[in-house]
Nucleic acid binder design. Structure first.
Lengths: 229, 229
DNA sequence: CCTACCGATCGGTAGG
DNA sequence: CCTACCGATCGGTAGG
């Protein structure tokens, strides 16, 4: 399955309640939920299949192993954001605008994700067979730091903030996933995402007037895109 | 063991290499390390005791259960910071200065911690018997948010940043624990802690000149304290 | 702090 | 997607 296929499939799923999903997707849903709650080793294959409503060995008709479930969830959590960040790190335009654009995309990605990805912790990547996701995580950090360093070089960002951006972004995405479990109102969620992006920019920019300029430009882009469809 | 005793004991341990620690503390050290790497359920009692150099059942002479080890680590991770945050949330002085003071304390606490607390995830607190630590975590968040709301009321902080502070602080403390495993130079570490505290303040304050004022005041306090001893 | 050992649970397979 | 079952490993106990 390619990343584009994954994104398209998620769009289909989001329109349905999890109970109406195909079995394979319901396994992913319950596995994500239970791994978030009890950790990868704490969530047993029997826990997962019991939540789905099938017997434990039936799971292996959909996934070759428990780790194959984890790999599918890690692709959503790491591979797709890494590709998007890399793309924007090589795009044209002001670094401050591209970082803002990435953050809005990232927070929407995690905020509208129908699976609970909170169990996808960096520490899981030490397990043999998951090296490719370690590479995705490193690529993501490199791409974000590339944009931030471009901003420092352009005089847009403070120098000493560089090393903290990926950490803070990870923490905020996490919080957005968490609150997305309760707040289902899309307008409140969009406002929260905008506020979070501005929070990070305030910590970064040398010239506060850049923040308003970038935010207005982003709103224009959104309005244009929305009207066009 | 009270929190004060825990803090005093940690000071003693920090002066020695872990190999020279008492067995009970070496169990905590290896357990913390392995739980950080493989998760609580992924780190078996046999993994831990093998790293310590004793047989698995010998562990139960020092701890009544595997969960008792976890509880000891959670006290260091949650109970002590919660007490410190609560204290500062009720102290006198400008909110911006008290938040800055808390952050410097917090980052030093995690940065100089001789045990690797990265495995202490909020999700562990769902296990029965750990309710007290759930309460500590809630108390910590409440205390931090109390200081931030005091700052908003005083016109020092932006309104819309309130809900993000605890998330960002948790993320940064995590990063500080992580980098503390490599960088052992105390001067670099202190500089990193100061930079991290300023990063958060920049995202929060309405008047940028407050940041410089608070930072200078904090340096004065440190200098006075250092000279006095 | 050790050896010997317990019942429970783990991820996964065989065969329909 | 099921029943039946596998060897390995789990946290913890008995008894010295």
């Amino acid at each position: 399955m390619t990343n584009d296929e994954r994104v398209a499939h998620l769009r289909v799923l989001r329109a349905l309640p999890p109970a109406a999903w195909p079995t394979r997707d319901r396994i992913l849903y319950e596995a994500a939920r239970l791994i978030a709650a009890k950790g990868y080793h704490g969530a047993s294959t029997r826990d997962i299949t019991e939540a789905v409503g099938i017997r434990q060995p039936s799971m292996f008709n959909h996934f070759a192993s428990k780790q194959a479930i984890l790999a599918e969830l890690l692709a959503l959590d790491l591979s797709i954001p890494a590709a998007r960040a890399d793309e924007l790190s090589r795009a044209e335009g002001r670094p401050v605008a591209r970082l803002h654009q990435y953050m809005l995309w990232d927070f929407e990605w995690y905020g509208e994700m129908p699976l609970d990805l909170r169990g996808m912790q960096e520490e899981l990547l030490v397990e043999p067979g998951l090296e490719t996701f370690r590479a995705d995580l490193e690529a993501w950090k490199k791409a974000i730091n590339r944009i931030v360093r471009q901003g420092v070089a352009a005089g847009e960002f403070e120098k000493d903030a560089v090393g903290l951006v990926t950490t803070v972004l990870t923490g905020i995405s996490w919080e957005i996933v968490r609150t997305a479990q309760f707040t289902r109102d899309p307008r409140t969620a969009a406002k929260q995402r905008k506020g979070a992006a501005l929070f990070v920019l305030r910590a970064l920019v040398t010239d506060p007037s850049d923040i308003a300029a970038v935010a207005v430009a982003a709103d224009d882009t959104t309005r244009r895109t929305t009207t066009a469809h």
